[in-house]
Design a protein around this nucleic acid. Structure first.
Length: 583
RNA sequence: GCACCCGUAGCUCAGUUGGAUAGAGCACCCGCCUUCUAAGCGGGCGGUCACUGGUUCGAAUCCAGUCGGGUGUGCCA
C-alpha cells in the first residue's frame, strides 16, 4: 500500500465517522513542501456539496482521524488538510521498499489485455526522425503497463502493403542498381522510392503505372511478389539494426501484408451487411447519423456551408485496398485472436481523423467492447521552430541522428569521463548519446511540438539522462569503495538530516507516480519524477557523507543509496534507458 | 469554411480530479573540489500563465468568445 492509499483509507474512515456515510477523499502530494508531504482538499469539496462550513468539517474530521504510525495532520486556509509524514515512517517505508522486488509499486486491480501498436515504419524507406516519438513513447508505455500487471502485446504494424510498394516496384523494374542494392540496401530502396515518387507527382501516367504495380502485388502477381519479398527482407535487416540500437523489441511484426487474405472478405462482408456501399467506384463507409452532432461525426465534413460526406474508403476504385482496410482487419484480428480489451495506437496527431473513423467502424463491428485509444503526439521541430528537415528538404534519417548524438557524446566522454579503455569510452558514448535522445523525447508532453536540439540534449548538466545516470554512478562509486559486506536488509534506517528525509520522501513516491502515467499515457510524468529523485540524491550526496559517517548513520545512508540506485535504474529501465557503471 | 491540437520566465519546457506566494533546466551573476565521481551542490536575477468575459470560497487548469501558431480535410499512410 502506498502512503497515499494509506492516507486515503484512514481519511475516508474519519469522514465516514463524521458524516455517517461513505465518501471518497482523495489525497495528493502537497503542492509545496511547506504545507506538508500530502494534502487533501476533500473537506472543501464535501462541505460545498453539503453547504456547511469547510473548516469546521475539516476540524471534526481531523479529530476523528487516526494517523498512528504515519504522522500528523493540520488544517490550513479555507479547509486544506495537510499531512506531515514522520521521519520514522519514511525510514520504515525505505526498509520495506528495499525488501520489495516491486519497489513499492502496486499491481493494477484490473489487469487488461492491451495491444500496443507503435513504431510501424513504412518498409522500403529508412526510418526517419519522425519515427522516434512513436517508437520511444510506445515502448515506454508498453513496459510500464506490463510492469503494472497488464497483459501487454506489442505489435509492429509495419507498412508493407501500401502505395509505396507500387512505387518501389515500378522503379525497381525501371532502374534498379543491383550493386548499390548490395552495398546499401536501404539507400537504394529509398532512391527507388524517391525516383518513382518524384516522377509520379509530375506525370499521371507514372502515377497510374505505380498504382497498377500495387494492384498486381495485392492480386498475387508472382514477379511483383518476389520483388516485394526481397524488399521486405532487406528492409527488415536495416530496421532490426536500428531497433537493436534503440533497445526496442516487439512481440509481433504483423504488418499490413499479414492481413491480405482478410481484406477481400472483409469488404464483401461490409457490403453484404450494408455497412459500406459503392461511391465513385470506390467502396466506402459513411455516416450512420451517430453522433447526432454533425461536427462530432467523423464521416462528415463541412464544405461550402453544407455538411457533406467524408467517407472512409475501404476499397479504392482501382480495386486496391488501403490503410483503412488493413486497419479494420487488424483491429478485428486483435479482438478475436488475442482477446484484446484495449489497443493503443501510438501514431502522430495528423492521423487523428483516420482513427476517429476507424474507432467508429470498430464500434459497428464485433469490436464494440474494445477500448481503442489514439495516443497522438506532436511534431518535432528544428531550432528554427519549423518541422525538422535536412537541407535537401527531407526528414533526417534516424540512424544519422543517432550517429550525431553519439558523436557529441564521444566528445563529452573524451573530456570528462573517468573510464579508461577506448572500448569503454566508445560504449559509454553510445549509451549516453542514445539515452539522451530517448530521454529528451520522453521528457516532453507528448502532445506538444518540441524543438530537437542535440546540443541541449547532450548538455553536461540539467534535465537530461546523463544527470540521472550520474547520480547512479556517484552512488555506485560509494559501494565500490565500501570495504566490507553490509547486510542492508537488516538495517533499520534512521533519518535525521533534511537531505536524508527528502530523499526518502521521494523514494516513497515511486509507487504513487507510476500508475498515474497510464491515466493519460504520459511517460513525461516518470521522467519528471526521476529527475526530482536524482536531484534529491545529488543534494543528499553533497550534504551527507556516507563512508565517513559512524556505523549506524552510515548504514542508514547505505540503505538510501541502494534504494536510490534501484529506483532510478528501474525507472530508467521502464523508459528503455540503461545506466553505466562508471562515467 | 469545418474539425482537432497548441499559446506559461530572454530560450527550452513542467505544472496530476480546479487549490495556498505558478516551478525546473539553459543563459547570466555570486559562492563551493587536499574529503564517497564538480556530467555535481548552495544562493541570486527573471513571469499581467496570449486577450476578454463567465462559473466559485478559490482558475494557468473548467465554460464562452477574440487574437496568434500548427495539423487535417474522397481514393497517401
Amino acid at each position: 500500500m502506498t502512503l497515499i492509499q494509506d492516507l486515503e483509507s484512514r481519511l475516508a474512515a474519519a469522514f465516514h465517522s463524521v458524516l455517517g456515510e461513505s465518501v471518497t477523499a482523495p489525497v495528493v502530494a502537497a503542492t509545496d513542501l511547506r504545507f506538508g508531504d500530502y494534502q487533501s482538499n476533500a473537506a472543501m469539496a464535501l462541505a460545498k456539496q453539503r453547504k456547511t462550513n469547510p473548516r469546521a468539517l475539516a476540524e471534526q474530521v481531523i479529530a476523528a482521524l487516526d494517523l498512528s504510525g504515519l504522522g500528523t495532520a493540520d488544517i490550513a486556509g479555507p479547509g486544506f488538510i495537510n499531512f506531515r509524514i514522520s521521519p520514522e515512517t519514511f525510514a520504515a517505508r525505505a526498509k520495506a521498499q528495499l525488501a520489495d522486488p516491486r519497489l513499492g509499486v502496486p499491481l493494477t486491480g484490473q489487469p487488461k489485455t492491451i495491444v500496443v501498436d507503435f513504431s510501424a515504419p513504412n518498409v522500403a524507406k529508412p526510418m526517419h526522425i519522425g519515427h522516434i516519438r512513436s517508437t520511444i513513447i510506445g515502448a515506454a508505455l508498453a513496459s510500464i503497463a506490463r510492469f503494472l500487471g497488464h497483459r501487454v502485446i506489442t505489435d509492429n504494424h509495419i507498412g508493407d502493403w501500401g502505395t509505396q510498394f507500387g512505387m518501389v516496384t515500378w522503379a525497381w523494374k525501371q532502374c534498379l542498381d543491383e550493386e548499390a542494392l548490395l552495398a546499401n540496401p536501404l539507400q537504394e530502396l529509398l532512391r527507388l522510392y524517391r525516383h518513382a515518387s518524384d516522377l509520379s507527382k509530375a506525370d499521371d501516367a507514372v502515377r497510374e503505372a505505380c498504382r497498377q504495380e500495387l494492384v498486381k502485388l495485392q492480386q498475387g502477381d508472382e514477379e511483383n511478389f518476389e520483388i516485394w519479398q526481397r524488399c521486405i527482407e532487406l528492409s527488415r535487416a536495416g530496421l532490426d539494426k536500428i531497433y537493436d540500437r534503440l533497445d526496442v523489441s516487439f512481440d509481433h511484426w504483423l504488418g499490413e501484408s499479414s492481413y491480405d487474405a482478410a481484406l477481400a472478405p472483409l469488404v464483401d462482408r461490409l457490403l453484404a451487411e450494408g455497412l459500406a456501399r459503392e461511391s465513385d467506384g470506390a467502396v466506402c463507409i459513411f455516416s450512420n447519423g451517430d453522433p447526432a452532432d454533425p461536427a462530432k461525426d467523423p464521416f462528415l465534413t463541412r464544405k461550402d456551408g453544407e455538411w457533406t460526406d467524408f467517407p472512409m474508403i475501404v476499397r479504392k476504385s482501382d480495386g486496391a485496398f488501403n490503410y483503412s482496410t488493413t486497419d479494420i482487419a487488424t483491429v478485428e484480428f486483435r479482438r478475436k485472436e488475442w482477446n484484446a480489451d484495449a489497443a493503443w495506437y501510438v501514431v502522430d496527431h495528423r492521423q487523428s481523423q483516420h482513427f476517429q473513423q476507424l474507432f467508429a467502424v470498430a464500434g459497428r463491428l464485433d469490436c464494440a467492447g474494445m477500448d481503442l485509444r489514439h495516443i497522438s503526439f506532436g511534431t518535432i521541430l528544428g531550432t528554427d521552430g519549423k518541422p525538422l528537415k535536412t537541407r535537401a528538404g527531407d526528414l533526417p534519417q534516424l540512424d544519422d541522428v543517432l550517429d550525431e548524438a553519439v558523436a557529441a557524446a564521444t566528445t563529452a566522454v573524451a573530456e570528462r569521463s573517468r573510464v579508461e579503455t577506448d572500448q569503454e569510452r566508445a560504449d559509454l558514448a553510445e549509451l549516453i548519446g542514445i539515452s539522451a535522445v530517448k530521454f529528451t523525447e520522453l521528457a516532453h508532453h507528448r502532445l506538444s511540438d518540441y524543438v530537437f536540439d542535440l546540443e541541449k540534449m547532450l548538455a553536461l548538466h540539467g534535465d537530461t539522462a546523463p544527470y540521472i545516470q550520474n547520480s547512479v554512478v556517484r552512488c555506485r562509486s560509494i559501494f565500490r569503495k565500501l570495504d566490507e559486506e553490509v547486510d542492508l536488509a537488516s538495517v533499520n534506517p534512521l533519518l535525521a538530516e533534511d537531505a536524508e528525509i527528502h530523499l526518502a520522501r521521494y523514494l516513497a513516491r515511486y509507487g504513487e507516480v507510476l500508475p498515474t502515467i497510464l491515466d493519460d499515457h504520459r511517460p513525461n510524468l516518470l521522467t519528471a519524477y526521476l529527475l526530482e529523485l536524482a536531484r534529491a540524491y545529488h543534494s543528499f550526496f553533497e550534504a551527507c557523507p556516507v563512508l565517513k559517517a559512524e556505523i549506524p548513520v552510515r548504514n542508514s545512508r547505505l540503505v538510501l543509496c541502494e534504494l536510490t540506485i534501484r529506483v532510478l535504474v528501474h525507472g530508467l529501465g521502464l523508459l528503455g534507458i540503461r545506466c553505466p557503471e562508471r562515467m
